[in-house]
Amino acid sequence: MNWLANIGASTIERVVMFGRATLMLFGALVAKPQPLKMLPLTIKQLYVVGVQSLLIIVVSGLFIGMVMALQGYTILVGYGAEGSLGPMVALSLLRELGPVVTALLFAGRAGSALTAEIGLMKATEQLSSLEMMAVDPLRRVIAPRLWAGVISMPMLAIIFSAVGIIGGHLVGVDWLGVDEGSYWSIMQATVEWDKDVMNGVIKSIVFAFVITWIATFKGYDSIPTSEGISKATTETVVFSSLAVLGLDFILTALMFGIE
């Protein structure tokens, strides 16, 4: 019966961890807002979390758009439907690849960095010393990072999609010779702002929230040793990637699945 006890213990451990994570979130966000102090801190984190992820997002977006166009063209040309390349690239990017790939890259680039940074701040007693200086580390350290993550990731996803569509144009129109007019016009006729673009943005806001929550919590809750921090960083990437893929299915079913 030992395994049963183990399952029970690990379940309780999970629930306790979830409780701690929620308390952390609560402490960080549900406090009397101090916009004058928060704004500069958040802008600084936007730089770290957003601007520094920009390069990888732009490069990945460009290449994914180009590959999509290449793959799509070879399939569509068999039906004589290469005119639909535009909507195919745009819809896949806006609805699916933009939010999801951005989220996965974000988890790897910014999420892991957040966890490691907060974990090291804990290990080097910076969080303790904030507390002893009567400054709440949840508000001072965690909250700006959460906000910056939630704000910057949808921005990155929008940039990713736009760059991807341009990449699709490069390959589809400039290289493979799809008619430029039909690339844009059929795309424009098919893609809807509120249904396709906004749903993608909503998805990426949800992903952003989950990833930054996991990343900040894993750092805050890490065991402050080199081993503990490396474990926490790995867990951030693994957990947030899984969460993104799982949530993506649920959100897609809710947004597009039901007629």
Partner: peptide, 11 residues
């Protein structure tokens, strides 16, 4: 105030 062993300066 507390002086931590590592200093705990904000890096």
């Amino acid at each position: 105030s507390m002086l931590f062993q590592s200093g705990a300066l904000f890096t």
